[in-house]
Simulated assay, not measured.
Amino acid sequence: MNRYYLYLVFLNMIINVIIFVPKVLIQYRYEGSVMGVILAIPVGIALNYFYSTTITKFPQQGIPDLQKNKHSGLKRLYLLSIQLVWFSAGLLTLVGFIDILARFVNPEMPKLLLLAIYLSAIFLIIQMPTERVMYLLEIVLFCNTPLILFIIFKAYSNDLINWDSILEVGTHIFKWPNLKAFAAATYCFSGYANLIVFNRVIKGKLKAWNFIVIAFLGMGNAFTTFFIPIGFHGSDGAQEYLYPWVTTADSLRLVYSPIERVIFLFIMFFMSISLMSVAIHWHVALELIKGSFKKELTKRKIWLILGVFAGISIAGILYFNTILLLKFATFWLIIRLGSEVMLVIVFCFWARRRTV
């Protein structure tokens, strides 16, 4: 198995738990979320397979590297347009997690101060070479994943979980899937798209075991993200919370631990996970911007681009409240799904013509 490929997909699965996906799925729990989650598994695996096996035919090359000898206006437009998807993905995660920190950890701390702390770390990471970014991701996942999986295990084994509520929602399995719920469910498999740049660190072709592991991990992640909050708060009560999984973590206790309330551990672990998620997306966006120019960008121009990133982030913090951010994220998930499908189709077609 290629561990770097698994890291990219697994990171996207973990970050799904805390931000917007659970809220969207629970919102449409009676209107097709169950079927949406079920259909998202084969669709997500299919997109993973076709895109990943195609791009790994060009070992240790990202899209900017494959097109470095082409300097047409169409190439520049293509790279700049798709980088907007990656930048917006990181922006939503960043603004959403800062809202969580301000709401659950320190309501009196200014959000802009939290943003400044995060941006200082993110800008340091995204300017590093792609291989070093992957090494840092490996360290973060190695330190945090066992603890997060332990919290999920505690949730499944908790006596307070109501399996009848989960079964009640499960009875709506034959409802036609809602598009918003389906788009949210497929997002947990979308980490493979980061190979657009991170294929630089992938050596050799991906074997079938990679996709089998992703299938089981994705299935477990999707149903855990959706059903655990319902089991703790009821089929109707789970709808009342803006961040269902954060509230669920606050329902858990570690009686013999130095820190009894799980919510503090939960948020602390996700601080580094969310940081790396934003850094991965913005590193891809920055590399796509670099690849759209003929000459290598100077340090001054790179910092100018980072200044634009910071300015848009500040505007997002000032403009979006929690409700507006959720609405925007819901429609973004639909746009992301369409863009992702088009990316896979166009790239597979282009790669086939190039290799023939």
Rank of each mutant, 00 (worst) to 15 (best):
A40I: 02
S257C: 03
W86P: 02
D236T: 15
N106R: 13
L337Y: 02
M109D: 11
I302S: 03
S277H: 07
N210A: 08
I335T: 04
V21Y: 03
V95Q: 04
V278W: 00
W332Y: 12
L306M: 13
V213F: 11
Y4A: 09
K57Q: 15
F20K: 12
Y51T: 02
F20E: 01
V140T: 07
K75E: 08
A102C: 11
Y4Q: 14
H233T: 11
F223Y: 09
A351K: 13
F216C: 12
C188F: 00
R336S: 07
R300N: 10
R253I: 07
L179R: 00
I18F: 09
I302H: 04
E240N: 09
M268W: 13
I267P: 00
K180N: 09
F347T: 15
A46F: 04
F174R: 11
F189L: 14
T145M: 09
L179C: 05
G218D: 03
K205Y: 06
S88T: 15
G73F: 11
L80M: 10
E108T: 13
N194E: 13
T247C: 15
L6S: 12
V278G: 07
N162C: 11
L25F: 05
I139Y: 10
T54C: 08
G316A: 12
L84T: 12
F10M: 03
W282G: 01
Y187E: 07
K57E: 03
H233V: 13
F266I: 14
W350I: 09
T298E: 14
V105Q: 02
L79R: 03
K111Y: 01
F293W: 14
F10N: 03
E240T: 07
L252R: 06
E287A: 02
I19T: 13
Y187M: 02
H172Q: 08
G220K: 10
R354M: 13
I280H: 02
E287S: 08
D236C: 06
H172F: 04
W303I: 03
G316I: 06
E131Q: 07
S72N: 05
E240M: 13
E260T: 10
K154L: 06
F347E: 13
A116S: 12
I19W: 00
R103Q: 15
N2L: 06
V201I: 14
K327P: 03
V262T: 03
G73K: 15
I82G: 00
K207Y: 15
S81K: 08
D250V: 05
G291F: 06
T130Q: 08
M219Q: 13
I314L: 15
P244Y: 09
A329I: 03
T322E: 14
L325G: 05
W86D: 04
G96W: 00
L288N: 07
D236K: 14
T330K: 12
T56N: 05
L137N: 01
P22C: 11
Q61V: 04
K75I: 13
A121S: 09
I122D: 02
K327S: 07
P258I: 12
F347N: 14
I263Q: 04
A181H: 05
I345R: 09
Y192V: 04
V346D: 09
S251C: 11
K290M: 11
N199C: 12
S292Y: 04
N2E: 15
M128G: 08
K154H: 09
L304H: 10
V21W: 01
Q83P: 15
F266C: 07
E31K: 14
F123A: 11
S72P: 08
F270W: 07
V37N: 06
F232P: 01
F97V: 12
A279H: 02
F189V: 01
M35R: 10
